[in-house]
Amino acid sequence: MSIDPRAALAAEPLRQHLRWTVRDVLLYHLSLGAGSQAATDPEPRYTLEHQLQVLPTFALVAGQGVSAPAVPRFEDKLAGLRLDPHRILHAGQDLRVSQPIPPVGEAWLTSSVTQIYDKGKAALVVLTENAHDGSDELLWTAETQLWVAGAGGFGGDPGPEVTWRRPDRAPNVEFSIQTQQQQALLYRLNGDMNPLHADAEFAAEAGFERPILHGLASFGMLARGVVEHIFDGEAARLGGVSARFRHPVLPGQSLAARVWRQDEAHLFEVSCPDAGGALVLGQGVVRAS
């Protein structure tokens, strides 16, 4: 494993043509637990094609799922880097959506490494992706933070200080999220086939008791809950969401979300009662469209 910050930051952006269909959107919603109580609420806005609205966080898997002709290898998105998948953790995610995502569509995605921070024993790699439609209108911008163990100590910038602060008052909204035992197996069909989420032996080698849930699954479930509890079930009103990934979630565990209204945004945290209240998503921010 090696990181050459100068080469990675100077590398030509990776360009990809993305296509997705209703099937991809339906699968994404199901992988976040939509329709899990189908006998009482089948949630047709997420599970039925002629009533379908698209959760904005679908942008993070668009063009990678069941309709994709080929899923790009994870490392192909990281020009200038050679990384061991055993040493990488998804540390944080920021998504800003410029307009509603259609259930059938295509986009041109440009990806580049925009920052590499030196955290001493690790490096924090920031990958920025911009998606445009055929008229060159911006659809979304995603910023992914990757924690690369053993890659720090190169004398680089340690990164900005954290400015997020938990409000010193009761949350405005609280809700629970129930993950499912098979959820990681289902979510990986969106395109992230990392064996950490399915292979018990691989997970053990990475230091986990069993395969863990994708961080982006918890992220998407939080976004779905925000749409239901803050935006009256209207997905198009969610304009952006960001969070740092803190503690892994095992499929089947429950999550507890706390949301505070703060100026023109909402702040949130998600914890896991089944893991002693460990913080799962921290420094969370929700933006309206």
Rank of each mutant, 00 (worst) to 15 (best):
Q262V: 12
Q182S: 13
D192V: 06
Q183D: 07
S254L: 05
L27R: 02
D133P: 12
A122G: 11
R237T: 07
F58Q: 08
H247W: 11
G153N: 11
L60V: 15
Q115E: 15
T57C: 13
A151H: 10
D199R: 12
F74G: 03
D118R: 05
A203I: 06
R169P: 03
E264Y: 05
P5D: 11
P167D: 07
I88P: 01
P44H: 08
D24N: 04
A256C: 10
E129F: 05
L238G: 05
R166Y: 09
P85C: 04
Q37G: 10
D168F: 09
G63S: 05
G152V: 04
V227R: 00
L186A: 10
R188F: 07
D192F: 09
H86A: 12
L83R: 05
G65F: 02
E205S: 12
G277W: 09
G207T: 04
E137I: 08
W164K: 07
W147H: 13
A223H: 02
E269F: 00
A107H: 00
E205D: 14
G225E: 02
I88H: 01
S242F: 02
H197P: 11
G252P: 03
L139D: 01
F219K: 01
L189K: 09
A122M: 12
G277Q: 09
S271G: 08
A79Y: 05
P158V: 10
A149L: 11
F231P: 00
E137V: 13
S176H: 10
L185Q: 14
A256W: 11
H197D: 11
W260Q: 07
V66M: 14
Q51F: 12
V104H: 12
Q262G: 01
R6E: 15
Q253V: 06
D157V: 08
T40P: 02
